[in-house]
Nucleic acid binder design. Structure first.
Lengths: 211, 211
DNA sequence: GTCTATACAAAGATAGAC
DNA sequence: GTCTATCTTTGTATAGAC
């Protein structure tokens, strides 16, 4: 059934739901302790299934890890794909910042796991980064370069601008522990979230406004 | 001898050198794969000692990990401690940015391990963050607030400004894999380093310049 | 599909000789 | 201080009954 076979429908759904629960548990735990820090016991417990049952749905811990990573990429790339080229530059970039901040608030595990992979040298994502991400970044960079040429943006290197946006927005998810230790607040707090978005936007947008 | 006893001197030095080599290996490996991903075998091999010998100098893998973390903090906190309050605001912040960028270039492992700890909720550093770091940040925030009040800086929340600086500068160490995938260059490349510093400085400094 | 029992491997740590 | 040998634990994964 899991391996194929469009049987019943009710059962297939139950299987899919379990798979989804395991994937959620995987994202949650891997994002905290990494592939090596996670144990099948903890993963199974978190997902609410037995260890053997988990291994029925995913042949190995690594297979689950890879499946989790694949799901992750969609979440991570969505904001960049949604980057607008048909509106005012400062509006487009301002929107992109708030979109990324929302991802940091709503999918902190995804952000953290992505970060974890990067720290390790991205053994599993490297090819994908060098191909897809690089091309996507080139596209968006061309738009930004165009804006600079038209004088709609102060002269800044598009790559470094994009890195600055990624860095600041993801920081609120990846370093939430530190932020909480220093400020006593997190992005879950609505007031704090808006304050953070506004401050980041102000700094970056004023930093690229033409004069 | 290791445990105390100011014997000989030559031998003590040899012991200290080994300990240092083990600590270096620990920083290098832990920063890549974390506490759980590191094995005593790999740690010992990297340090150039036998597994049992390593356990002679550090009673357990965790003990080594903690020792590495302690060394780490000095590197990590140094730039913030060096933050100047007696020069022009934009110069002080510009210097801080380039200092942090230099740390990202020269101590990428330290930056990565710090990041790793944060991702995991900083079980070992939490108390320290909530006490020492918080206080240090408060001190520097007060300085920034003063500058804002004097009109020497555009109105920005000091916390978010500090986070923005940390995020952008550390990003070049923590996400070096991604940066290399996208740009084909790293901070080790001198031209790229200066280009990165300048772009980050421009964005942030222009973003906080009063008008 | 799910469970119990179990095989198998890896890795942390210790004992004791030298 | 350093080595060899070994114990022990933990965790991944499989076999086979139901």
């Amino acid at each position: 059934m899991v391996a194929g076979a469009m049987t019943s429908g009710r059962r297939a759904k139950a299987g899919a739901a379990k798979k989804a629960a395991i994937l959620r548990a995987g994202l949650d735990i891997f994002s905290r302790v990494g592939l090596h820090g996670a144990t099948l016991d903890r993963l199974a417990e978190k997902a609410g299934v037995s260890k053997t049952n988990l291994l029925y749905y995913f042949p190995s811990k690594e297979a689950l890890y890879i499946a989790v990573l694949q799901d992750l990429l969609d979440i991570w790339l969505a904001p960049l794909r949604a980057f607008r080229h048909d509106v005012e530059p400062l509006a487009a970039i301002g929107d992109y910042i708030s979109l990324k901040m929302a991802v940091s608030r709503d999918h902190p595990q995804a952000s953290r796991l992505f970060c974890l992979e990067m720290l390790q040298g991205a053994p599993l994502l490297k090819t994908l980064l060098e191909r897809d991400l690089r091309q996507l970044v080139e596209e968006k960079s061309a738009i930004i370069r165009g804006w600079v040429a038209e004088g709609k943006l102060a002269p800044r290197d598009p790559h470094h601008l994009i890195f600055t946006i990624w860095a600041t927005t993801q920081h609120y998810a990846d370093f939430s522990t530190q932020i909480e230790a220093v400020c006593g607040q997190t992005l879950q707090d609505d007031t704090f979230f808006h304050q953070a978005v506004e401050n980041v936007q102000r700094i970056i947008l004023e930093g690229i406004r033409p004069r």
